[in-house]
Amino acid sequence: MLDVADVHTYYGEGYVLQGVSLTVEPASIVAVLGRNGVGKTTLIRTVIAFTPARRGRVMFEDRDITRWPSYRIAKAGMGLVPQGRRIFPSLSVRENLEIAQRAAATDIAEPWSLGRVLDLFPALAERLRNGAGTLSGGEQQMLTVARALVGNPRLLLMDEPTEGLSPHIVAEMKKLVVGLRARGMAILLVEQNLAFALDVADRVHVMDKGKIVFGGTPAELDADETIKKTYLGV
């Protein structure tokens, strides 16, 4: 459903993605691993067209979205859980969800109502009227996921969703993404947490310096000590 074909992405003169290709099938989790600064976030930014690819192509459900504006891509059914959470601190929790719902995709069998999303995140239900900036880190991460879900995405881009979370919340997150996949969601997951990625992903890719240097199943990656040592430092 997502097909990234040989994309090259720049920040000004800075040449970051140097020919990256990968695909994500429906109801599957594809993980991208790699050290700091190899271009994982840039890959996400390229897919959602915050920083569009200068060369190459991004196809989403057989439509070429490479040059679409970001809002149109999101509305077409792509949800974003960005690195660093990026909730809107001057809005209440409810408003954070309401504005996302306003632009929700409508062409989906089982739309996510506010109620259904809050069933998944009871902690948020209790804090709807609070300022989003007053939530704890874990709650903010839940809000980011909830905010993406009310947009009714069929593909979720998640950029280091476990960053800075306690082990308990990471376990919750694991249940959550596996549950979403069981409902048919496709997920492109960027991670530094190797164990988490190996646990949930159907396919894993390893990136280094703007290129993909490994692609395979979690078991294959786990068995490949050289790749793990050279590119992931474990």
Partner: peptide, 25 residues
């Protein structure tokens, strides 16, 4: 209003608002 909340969210992080599917331009 929700539209007002969109404007305030845009002041916080305009790019992220686009990432939610809102026609920020």
């Amino acid at each position: 209003t929700t539209l007002g909340a969109i404007v305030r969210a845009g002041m916080d992080d305009e790019e992220m608002v686009r990432g939610l599917g809102i026609n920020v331009p």
